[in-house]
């Protein structure tokens, strides 16, 4: 559960557009129509070289196993960090690097 998967190019030129795809296994239980306890991610944040590039706030209408695709301008050194934060404060982390030429 809550295993992050990231798809990024291995290398890119400085300033080049890169596609970022993310997926995390998570049931996203809203507890609206079941008696299961609520189990929801609250936010997803992506940084590149320590600077925020993309975030998402999850509402009840966000699907289970949340996935995102978006496009970023590659900048050296190309260090990406992905953080999913649960409503209970637990963080799920993934770090990836793109070699910038």
């Amino acid at each position: 559960m809550a295993t992050p998967r990231i798809r990024l190019p291995r290398s890119a030129s400085e300033g080049e557009e890169i596609e970022v795809r993310t997926l995390i296994d998570h049931p996203m239980i809203t507890a609206v129509s079941t008696s299961d306890p609520r189990d929801m991610l609250a936010t997803f944040a992506v940084t590149m070289n320590g600077e925020t590039v993309f975030t998402y706030d999850f509402g009840n209408g966000s699907a289970a196993n949340p996935t995102f695709t978006f496009y970023v301008r590659a900048a050296a050194p190309g260090d990406f960090s992905f953080v999913w934060t649960h409503e209970d404060g637990t963080e799920y982390l993934a770090d990836e690097s793109v070699a910038i030429s």
Binding site: E17, T30, V32, S33, M48, E51, T52, V53, F54, T55, Y56, D57, F58, G59, N60, G61, S62, A63, N65, P66, T67, F68, T69, F70, Y71, V72, R73, A75
Partner: peptide, 28 residues
């Protein structure tokens, strides 16, 4: 969502570090 039990599906926050205002996800 106008007819889900709750109206909030989600909010994307974008920055100029993104090359285009284009985002994809999956919703309920």
């Amino acid at each position: 969502a106008t007819r889900n039990p709750a109206p909030q599906i989600g909010t994307f926050r974008l920055t100029p570090q993104m090359t285009r205002a284009e985002v994809m996800t999956r919703i309920r």
